[in-house]
Amino acid sequence: MEVILVFLSAAIVNNFVLTYFLGICPFVGVSKKVDTALNMGMATTFVMTMTAAVTWLIYHFIILRYNLPFLEYVAFIITIASLVQFVEMFIRKASPALFRTLGIFLPLITTNCAILGLALFAVLREYDFVESIFFGLGAGAGFTLALVIMAGIREELELADVPPALRGAPITLLVAGLLALSFMGFAGLLSV
């Protein structure tokens, strides 16, 4: 039960993109097409889940055990970087077309603050191993959700009669703001 709450909390109530404003770069950069957004979301979800699991192990079996809290950031970052590298190899093998569509945003998952944020949050909130994994999954699902909703809206926007002054980046940022505002409706539902 607890893990489901953790999942829902990370995915919807405390959505990483729309509530914490983490990972805005790919949120704006890869949300032009629903297809690409979904694939980017999947890649990020995978990295997030793996990161949550691996960093939990590193934190509890290395950092806590030998009392090296100052290594937290460095250790987490090399974990994330390695996992992203792995995902990159995997996507390159599995789908070269997707690899080219994601382009620079794939290696940029490394510096996606949502992922480092996730690892640090999981430590801060003292989740156990299973909860951590679900936290990662939920955060990934929330990220995917935000990206896909945004891509859906932007696909519709292509056909809309947007005032010339707002075309392009301004309307995208406005939409992102409204989306975040609407997600505030979930605020306080869960406090996990």
Partner: peptide, 11 residues
Amino acid sequence: ILSILAMGGLG
């Protein structure tokens, strides 16, 4: 030594 070992090991 511990931190060198830890980061080295992870690397």
